[in-house]
Design a protein around this nucleic acid. Structure first.
Length: 625
RNA sequence: UGGGAUAUGGUGUAAUGGUAACACAACAGGUUUUGGUUCUGUUUUUCCUGGUUCGAAUCCGGGUAUCCCAACCA
């Protein structure tokens, strides 16, 4: 409740306009409907000009790229329009939550480039929520039910038929208060008692059929320890937390659309509670809480809501991120980790933020992607190719170019003197000449890619073949020996083991006259005596099917278990570990997570497990081809 | 036999009653010591149907399709 005052703003672009009627002339075309609303609200001076958001993850798993979409909105718009965004952990279910996740969530948000104004926990409000619930009981708007979960579910009715009232619905207030206390005593068996809001068991919105607002868990909580045994439910926590913090814009995903009326109802009830407290603060705690609310402008001293600047939080829903060939739900990601289908939350095939980081995606590329897909109310399935395009676009500017040979075959330059070594220059990044160059060595024996040689060249093959010329990048033009001149060796299985060529000494890169035109392409290469062994991990999509979410549901509908369905959908080639690769010495001491381009192959990143003695690289994404 | 939400090229998004556009993808070509980058060009769009209007992707009626809701999860 200390979030007032510091975030009073007006939209930068909207100030200084003559005349008061500015909102109608505000041009918001091209902005998302969410951002348009922010601009208009600020132009109208809503909430006294305050603009405040929150990012409310549950600490029950690692953040994934879908969260990045929410983060870019909550933090991004707050930053853009001079508001503030708080991080609030939605920790109302101690069964699933762990401090391990809190640290990773904070780290991932920072990595994406954002900083919160304050860190809060929904559990910070457990006392207020409890007092509020007690007040509701006294008002006759909540009651303790002692039926089993099954019976309560049955009485709820269905989407097409109304529910029926619980026999405990009209329990006397005193009994409700006594049982509610008992729920929190630690003596109450979980599942035997729940607190429900008394609304309407025939309501077309299922959420209004006397929703459960408190349940007994008797589980210690990561923040509050053993203080509480009865815990509030999401719907009884979220809107109130927003209100207590002074959130003005509460954004969430589309599946919460139906929760909005309930969100509004509980906020309204809470305002009533505060107004009643303001008129007759009964306890010192209540009095001090009310004073804070008055100071914050949330309620006026008289309790007259019309005078309060803060109009309360408004929930607005946007479409969550769906990516093709990607499974996003935390529950299923946890299953992948628990069953060992991936090496961990940061396995580079995972859609988690930490996995994208390890895979070699830059935070900028992720944010750029998010900004391209937009925020709407349409349940879209986005193309992974757009994300890959964003990362290529960013890495093209950023990545240091090096040579690596991932599928090596030996090439001998027969007319190059044995023992001779030349130092040549390699540009670090042609997109950024200011980054200079580094030195590479050339010698008689080289590694080139096996795919860059064909004993009998296909029609459109423009690389090395008997009698054909190619350029070795930053070095010489070479010519493979003609048929009949012993162009290559083969082993017993017919695999090429060594290729023979001659070089043209007049064509060294950078020398005058070296740039004679040839038909062949330019190949990358490494000097056998001057490179390092490396392990390169090549990744492809984890899932074979375009829409794993729907396919998983379909297969489970056919009777398969979650595990069986996943196994059936998984791409067996999603990880190929290439242990027999070579790379230039230049990279040996570069730190983990350095952005690299293996020329002609793709963008790669130094793995967090890599050491100078055992270099490990992850393929981020291939070059476009 | 309920309620809520949505529908614009292959994918996503814009156009806020006035010429349907942008990005990705795809295709063709120029440049290139990365089959990369870059540049030029091409293909493909308003779910159906009726109405209002000088004029409809936009407003209205009726269909159709898809998504969400019957957790002591969030």
């Amino acid at each position: 409740m200390n979030d007032n005052d510091t975030s009073k703003v007006t939209a930068p672009s909207l100030t200084g306009r003559a005349g008061g009627e500015s909102s109608s002339s505000t041009d918001t075309r091209g902005l998302s409907f969410i951002e348009q609303k922010v601009v208009n609200d600020l132009a109208e001076g809503k909430n006294g000009g305050r603009f405040q958001t929150r990012f409310p993850p549950e600490p029950n798993g690692y953040l994934h790229i879908g969260h990045a979409k929410a983060i870019a909105l909550d933090f991004g718009l707050a930053k853009k329009y001079g508001g503030k965004c708080n991080l609030r952990f939605d920790d109302t279910n101690p069964q699933k939550e762990d401090t391990e996740y809190i640290d990773s969530i904070e780290q991932d948000i920072r990595w994406l480039g954002f900083e919160w104004a304050n860190v809060y926990y929904a559990s910070d409000y457990f006392q207020q929520l409890w007092d509020f619930a007690v007040w509701l009981i006294k008002q006759g708007r909540a009651y303790v039910d002692e039926q089993s979960a099954e019976v309560i579910a049955q009485q709820k009715g269905t989407t097409t038929s109304p529910g029926t009232n619980s026999p405990f619905r009209d329990r006397p207030v005193e009994e409700n208060l006594r049982l509610f206390e008992f729920m929190n005593s630690g003596q109450c068996e979980p599942g035997t008692l729940v607190l429900r809001a008394k609304i309407d068991m025939a309501h077309p919105n299922m959420l209004f059929r006397d929703p459960l607002i408190y349940r007994v868990l008797n589980i210690p909580h990561i923040k509050t320890g053993n203080r509480w045994n009865a815990y509030p439910m999401y719907d009884f926590t979220h809107g109130q937390s927003d209100y207590l913090e002074g959130v003005t814009h509460s954004w969430c995903t589309l599946e919460f659309v139906e929760h909005r009326p309930l969100y509004d109802l509980f906020v309204t009830w809470m305002k009533e509670w505060f107004e009643s407290l303001a008129k007759a603060p009964q306890t010192p705690e209540g009095a001090s809480m009310v004073q804070k609310l008055i100071d914050g402008g949330y309620v006026s001293p008289s309790g007259d809501e019309g005078e309060a600047a803060y109009q309360g939080p408004r929930q607005t829903e946007f479409n969550k991120l769906n990516l093709n060939y990607t499974l996003m739900s935390k529950r299923n990601l946890l299953a992948l980790v628990k069953n060992g289908f991936v090496s961990g939350w940061d396995d580079p095939r995972m859609p988690t933020i930490c996995a994208f980081r390890r895979r070699g995606y830059s935070p900028e590329s992720i944010i750029n992607f998010i900004n391209k897909i937009g925020y709407t109310t349409y349940d879209a399935l986005n193309d992974f190719a757009l994300l890959e395009s964003a990362v290529r676009d960013d890495l093209n500017q950023r990545a240091t170019r090096v040579s690596a040979v991932v599928n090596p075959v030996k090439l001998i330059i027969t007319n190059y003197p044995e023992g001779q070594v030349e130092e040549l220059e390699a540009i670090n990044n042609p997109e950024r000449p200011e980054e200079g160059s580094h030195t590479i060595e050339f010698s008689r024996e080289l590694w080139i890619e096996r795919e860059d040689f064909q004993p009998v060249a296909e029609k459109k093959f423009m690389r090395l073949a008997p009698g054909k010329e190619v350029r070795l990048k930053n070095a010489y033009i070479i010519k493979c020996n003609e048929e009949g001149e012993h162009p290559y060796d083969v082993d017993a299985e017919g695999n090429v083991t060594c290729i023979y060529a001659t070089y043209d000494p007049e064509t060294r890169s950078g020398q005058p006259g070296a740039d004679r035109k040839i038909k062949g392409k330019t190949l990358h290469w490494l000097s056998c005596g001057h490179c390092l062994p490396a392990e390169v991990r090549m990744y492809e999509r984890l899932w074979k099917v375009e829409n794993p979410r729907d396919e998983l549901a379909r297969l489970q509908g056919e009777g398969l278990s979650n595990i069986e369905a996943m196994q059936q959908m998984m791409n067996p080639d999603s990880l190929r570990m290439l242990k027999n690769c070579y790379i230039e010495k230049f990279v040996q001491t570069m730190p983990a997570l350095t952005y690299l381009q293996f020329q002609r192959i793709g963008y790669f990143n130094i793995d967090t497990d890599s050491t100078p003695d055992h270099l490990v690289f992850n393929k981020t994404v291939g070059l476009r081809s």
